[in-house]
Simulated assay, not measured.
Amino acid sequence: MEDVPDIYDPAFVKAVFDRCSRRYIAFSFVCSLGFTERWRRQCVAALALPRGAATGYDFMSGTGEVWPHLLGANPEIEQIVAVDISSGMHTLAMERLHAMRSDRIAFIEDDVLASDLPDASADFVASTFGLKTFSPAQHRRLAALTARVLKPGGRFAFIEASDPRGWLLRPLYLFHLKTVLPAIERIFLRGAQDFAMIGTYSTQFGNCRQFTGMLEGAGLIASYRRAFFGCATMAFGHKPL
């Protein structure tokens, strides 16, 4: 009997995103009809960064596409520490977005849950489209990590592509994830089947509501919000003073 891989195992996740990193930006933008960029902006808006010197983390940073939005929201950010497990994603982020901001962006290439990040070291934590690669048990650990690394009053915002349960067009959305995306990959990307995992991760993730509760359980003030009929959802808030 063939072994079924654990799709949340860090080694499995790293391998998937290393293989698809070179085409990830174009594929995600086109196949989300441009919504991923809009949702990044909404995530940063929910983060509600105050002006002034600040240091923070970009968890599961991927290709670093949220950095321009963060620096635009607060030009006085001193440093963004990007944490991601994928070597391929880090390499691409450095090539595309890091060069002009090398004095303000640092990298940690590691599983964020295994990284030894200092307590109370961040004014903010942001994360865009990385939650789906974690299991519920890993989400609980991530919530505790977020609470630990934030300074009192520090802010956080997570956004993730989600399953829009209750939406009239949900069957069409799921057809897009489960049928259209794998077909595009087979035809144009030589059948690597890595991008199809994005649909698998998204539908198994559900939405950010449960994670919002975990953040509250970790002692944070957290809110939940839907975007575009629930095709993306957010968990955002702050650490009490």
Rank of each mutant, 00 (worst) to 15 (best):
A235R: 00
V180L: 08
H98Y: 14
A126M: 03
L241G: 13
C208Y: 09
F29L: 08
L215M: 15
T36D: 15
R225H: 04
F156G: 05
H139T: 06
T55N: 08
L117H: 12
L33Y: 10
M214S: 10
G213C: 08
V66C: 10
L47A: 05
D194W: 01
R96T: 13
Q138I: 01
A232D: 01
L47M: 08
A45C: 04
V44C: 07
Y57G: 03
F59A: 05
G62I: 04
F27A: 09
D119M: 03
F158R: 08
R225L: 10
G34Y: 06
R140V: 01
H98P: 09
S61Q: 00
P50A: 02
R22F: 12
F211Q: 09
N207R: 07
E160R: 05
A218N: 06
P240C: 02
A147E: 09
F175G: 04
Q79M: 14
M197W: 03
G153V: 11
F205Q: 04
E109S: 03
D163Y: 13
F175W: 15
G130N: 04
A144K: 05
K14S: 14
F129Q: 01
A99T: 13
C208T: 14
D103Q: 14
F59P: 00
L131Y: 00
A235L: 09
L145E: 06
P118E: 07
A82E: 05
I187A: 14
R225C: 06
E160P: 00
T91V: 09
E185R: 12
M214L: 15
A157W: 08
R186N: 03
G88D: 03
G230C: 05
M100A: 14
A93E: 09
A232L: 01
F35W: 12
V30D: 06
A73M: 08
S115C: 15
F156A: 06
M1E: 13
E65N: 05
A45G: 05
P68D: 13
L113Y: 05
T203I: 15
P68V: 12
S135C: 07
A99G: 07
A143R: 03
P10M: 06
R19S: 14
A147F: 01
R190S: 14
S86C: 08
F195L: 07
R148H: 02
L181F: 02
A54T: 02
Y173E: 01
D123Y: 03
M94L: 12
G153S: 05
V4M: 13
A183S: 02
A15D: 15
A147C: 11
A82F: 12
A143V: 01
S28N: 15
A232S: 07
G230M: 07
K132E: 02
T233H: 10
H90I: 12
F195N: 05
A232F: 08
P118W: 07
A11D: 11
N207D: 15
A232W: 06
G130F: 04
A122Y: 04
R23P: 00
Q210F: 11
A122F: 04
L220V: 03
S162Y: 12
